[in-house]
Amino acid sequence: MTMTQALIEEATKKSGLIWVQGPAGPSRALWHVWHEGAAYVVGGPGEQPLDGLGLTGGATATVTVRSKDKGGRIVSWTAAVTELAPREEAWTAVVAELKGKRLNAPDAEGLEERWAGSCRVLRLAPTGASSNLPSDSLAAVPLPTPATTRHPMPAALPKLLRRGRKGR
């Protein structure tokens, strides 16, 4: 194993998120699991969105791994994308790993069935190519969303909250 492969594996294993940029669309943060030499992600309805990235079987993607403690970029590598067919042996093994990492699943008992029916499990295997980290920030405009920002807290609210505690 080369030094670059070891760095890719260790950094990706330890990071909770990876930034993936497919042939189309912007880079997106995805939770993943490292299993048998590749990063695996699951996406679809009720899971993280993979649409708009162009991640299909045979495509390549750029994966950027950040430091778990500081959040800075550690390594950026090229991945070959493969979509796993539901309920095959490899899919079952990976889904068992992904299921253990899935936090706050609304349907933990039926998770595998939902993933088999409506989600995609993708394998992102390192091709051996890595790129130098850029020196600029690469900050991008946030994607459009229906979510809104909270309005500022009313000035009198802290006083009202303190007064409520004294009365008890």
Rank of each mutant, 00 (worst) to 15 (best):
M1E: 04
M1T: 07
Q5N: 09
Q5P: 00
E9L: 07
A11G: 01
T12R: 01
T12I: 05
K13H: 08
K13T: 08
S15T: 10
S15P: 02
W19F: 07
W19A: 07
V20W: 04
Q21L: 00
A24T: 14
G25A: 09
P26K: 06
R28F: 03
R28T: 08
A29Y: 03
L30T: 01
W31D: 01
H32Y: 02
V33D: 03
H35Y: 12
E36Y: 00
A38Y: 04
A39W: 03
Y40H: 07
G43N: 09
G43Y: 03
G43D: 06
P45T: 12
P45R: 14
E47Y: 10
P49K: 01
P49F: 03
P49E: 06
P49R: 13
L50K: 02
L50N: 09
G52L: 04
G52M: 05
L53I: 08
G54I: 14
T56L: 12
G58D: 07
T62R: 12
T64Y: 04
S67A: 09
D69N: 12
K70Q: 13
G72R: 11
R73I: 00
I74M: 13
I74S: 05
I74N: 03
S76D: 05
A79Q: 03
A80F: 02
L84G: 01
A85Y: 00
A85Q: 12
P86E: 05
R87S: 10
E88W: 00
E88L: 02
E89M: 09
E89D: 13
W91A: 01
A93L: 11
A93S: 11
A93V: 04
V94E: 03
E97C: 05
E97L: 00
K99N: 11
N104D: 14
A105C: 13
A108T: 10
E109N: 04
E109I: 11
E109F: 03
E109T: 07
G110W: 10
G110V: 11
L111G: 04
R114D: 13
R114G: 06
A116C: 05
G117K: 12
R120C: 01
L122C: 06
L122Y: 01
R123W: 00
L124W: 04
L124Y: 08
A125N: 02
T127D: 08
T127R: 01
G128F: 06
N132E: 15
S135W: 07
D136G: 09
A139D: 09
L143G: 02
P146Y: 05
P146I: 02
P146Q: 05
A147D: 14
T148N: 07
R150L: 14
R150Q: 10
H151R: 15
P152E: 05
P152S: 04
P152N: 04
P154N: 08
A155F: 11
A155M: 06
L157V: 14
K159Q: 15
K159H: 14
L160K: 15
R163Y: 10
G164R: 15
G164P: 00
R165Q: 13
R165A: 14
G167I: 10
G167V: 13
R168T: 12
